[in-house]
């Protein structure tokens, strides 16, 4: 088990290197720092001196991969690749274009992101699994049919509509909670209620349908017939047998997103003005702050790999047949 985890973690290293090389290629080779400087400074006021100054301020004035002018180890370390990409591995993210320390920003913004993402995740999972079980229990009835119809309709609505419509109805018409904003401490509840609720509702359609499919697939199997033949009641069959066995396919989709909860939700955070990592990313995209985008790409990939590992480990918990070697 331990050997497996270690091996998986070692396997993550080439993937992270790949991610790093890809982002490096995207940000520095396809478009040179000169292009970035020109875009940041605006096309009109651009002079060679201004570009040089912009690059020097941000440390983009070094060679890309190999610095022939430096001596010793600096030949490799005093380059853009080393300064901007390799340092990500030790979580040294450098500074954003506005001069703030990215690492510090990420640490302070993690809290609000988690405050929205974790309740959304837990509540969403609970609600959708319950609905799906309900539909599976009443399968092949009118309730099931119309439930699926509602699910398909709900998953056809744009997530933007849920957010804009929810904000309009709950905050503007009914004046129940503030439209947007965030505050720490116990006050946060008022601000978090609506975004969490909207995110949960927006996810109901597709998840419920997906879980219902999984449950129905399990119900069609032989062990369920055996359980019924033993004389077990339908609820017992559903909760004790089907739910437990359906955990494996459900976990595949669910566990992998748990680490990514740190990244927050781009849309919800930006609409509700929550100072989390999601809105940080959107702001960086809009301000074309490449240093921040690069850091977020790195963190996101790292968390995804952790999620994959957690998925494998969770299999051993729910399915004793799985042995990790």
């Amino acid at each position: 088990m331990l050997a497996y985890i270690v091996r998986r973690l070692l396997y993550a290293i080439p993937i992270l290197i790949g991610v790093n090389l890809l982002t490096f290629a995207l940000f520095f080779v396809v478009n040179t720092p000169d292009d970035m400087a020109r875009m940041q400074l605006g096309v009109k006021r651009v002079t060679p001196e201004a570009i040089e100054k912009w690059k020097a301020e941000r440390g983009y004035d070094k060679p890309l991969l190999y610095n022939g002018a430096a001596d010793g180890a600096e030949k490799v370390t005093s380059t853009i690749f080393f300064e901007k990409s390799v340092k990500l591995f030790v979580f040294d993210f450098g500074r954003a274009d506005d001069g703030r320390d990215i690492g510090h920003e990420i640490r302070t913004r993690m809290g609000p992101s988690l405050a929205i993402a974790v309740p959304t995740f837990v509540l969403g999972l609970f609600v959708t699994v319950s609905f799906a079980l309900l539909l599976a229990f009443f399968r092949a009835t009118y309730l099931d049919f119309w439930g699926v119809v509602v699910c398909v309709a709900m998953m056809s609505v744009s997530s933007l509509f849920y957010i804009i419509g929810g904000q309009y109805l709950v905050s503007k018409v009914w004046h129940l909670v503030p439209i947007s904003g965030y505050a720490g401490g116990p006050d946060a509840m008022r601000f978090l209620l609506l975004p969490v609720l909207i995110s949960v509702v927006a996810g109901i359609g597709s998840s419920t349908r997906w879980y219902r499919t999984i449950f129905l697939e399990e119900i069609g199997k032989d062990y369920v017939r055996t359980a019924r033949a033993k004389g077990l009641s339908e609820p017992t069959v559903l909760f004790r047998h089907v739910l437990k066995n359906a955990m494996i396919p459900i976990l595949t989709g669910v566990v992998v997103v748990i680490p990514l909860l740190f990244m927050g939700s781009l849309l919800v955070e930006s609409f509700f003005g929550v100072p989390g990592l999601g809105s940080y990313t959107i702001d960086a995209i809009n301000a074309q702050d490449f240093a921040v985008v690069r850091s977020m790409v790195f963190i996101g990939s790292l968390l995804y790999i952790v999620g994959l590992l957690l998925t494998d480990l969770s299999y051993t918990l729910v399915d004793p047949r799985v042995r990790l070697q």
């Binding site: 790949g18 875009m39 781009l266 990313t281 995209i285 985008v293 977020m296 790409v297 996101g300 990939s301």
Partner: peptide, 22 residues
Amino acid sequence: TTLNSIPGVLLIAAAVLMVQVA
């Protein structure tokens, strides 16, 4: 696995920004 591990939105953002610069 490498492509998948980059959050989709961020990869799209990075690539679209690059295309826009070009």
